[in-house]
């Protein structure tokens, strides 16, 4: 029962945020400043760490694939193609979302938790400002934009890194490697990656905000909320990734 509530509550937050966003669109009352701020916090500030991590991950995956291919096929000309498919379908959306969950999820849960224990949330009610409008919608849009943008950037970085490694360590011409790069990748894969990043970008803020809004009083409560937010978001990312994979790519 408790487990169900932990999923139900973020879902509830999502629904009210969606309604809140649509109604604020119709009323033309967009909290542009808050949204810009959240996108900045979530996306722009995460670019370095995510670029770096994705670069390293795709480097490792190319080298690993190359080893496998050499063992089995005695040549590794198709490595970039395999590696890019893996990156687009799995690595880029999931790793980006995981990093974002640990960076942004924790901060959302902690920030909202502190707002709760310092009565700022009550204050919002007194000021007749909906916490959905003020807290959730900007964070949702921020995470959404951040996750989609960073996933795309990750894919780009993975492609560039792959060609770079091919030229530097595997003795291929960049052009050769580039030709092989897009061999197995289709627009369907790219669309799948976008769907994933949209799902994860929605999941992270609402799960985290759920823990923040329900955080127990005291600094321990805030710490617990932040930990739970990261742990639960990461777990849900993996589960949802499995679901999307089985719906999107499995025959």
């Amino acid at each position: 029962m408790r487990e169900w509530n932990q999923l139900e509550y973020p879902a509830l937050l999502f629904c009210s945020s969606f309604v809140g966003f649509v109604s604020s669109l119709t009323r033309r009352e967009i909290r542009g400043r808050e949204i810009i701020k959240q996108i900045y916090e979530c996306a722009v500030m995460s670019i370095p760490v995510i670029s770096f991590s994705l670069g390293i991950v795709s480097l490792m995956s190319v080298l690993e694939f190359s080893w496998h291919m050499r063992v089995v096929l005695r040549q590794d000309a198709l490595v970039p193609a395999f590696s890019l498919v893996l990156t687009i379908r799995e690595v880029a959306p999931v790793v980006t979302a995981m990093l974002l969950a640990s960076r942004v999820g924790a901060s959302i849960a902690a920030e909202i938790g502190v707002m709760k224990i310092t009565e700022q949330l009550d204050q919002l009610k007194l000021l007749a400002v909906s916490e959905v409008d003020y807290l959730l919608v900007p964070r949702w849009l921020g995470c959404l934009v951040a996750n989609v943008a960073l996933t795309l950037i990750s894919i780009g970085i993975a492609g560039v890194v792959t060609i770079f490694i091919g030229a530097r360590w595997m003795g291929y011409q960049p052009g050769e490697f580039y030709n092989s790069l897009l061999l197995f990748t289709t627009g369907y894969d790219l669309a799948g990656a976008l769907v994933k990043s949209l799902c994860f970008g929605t999941l992270i803020p609402f799960v985290s905000a759920g823990y923040g809004l329900r955080c127990a009083l005291g600094s321990q409560g805030v710490g617990e909320a932040a930990t739970q937010a990261v742990a639960r978001s990461s777990l849900l990312i993996i589960i949802i990734d499995l679901f999307i994979n089985s719906l999107w790519w499995m025959p």
Binding site: E119, Q120, Q123, K125
Partner: peptide
């Protein structure tokens, strides 16, 4: 209804509860 109640009736918390962002 509470929105209009809160307009008529202002509460100043013990802690300042300013939005720190």
């Amino acid at each position: 209804q509470m929105v209009s109640v809160r307009q008529k009736c202002g509460l100043v918390f013990q802690m300042p509860a300013l939005l720190d962002s």
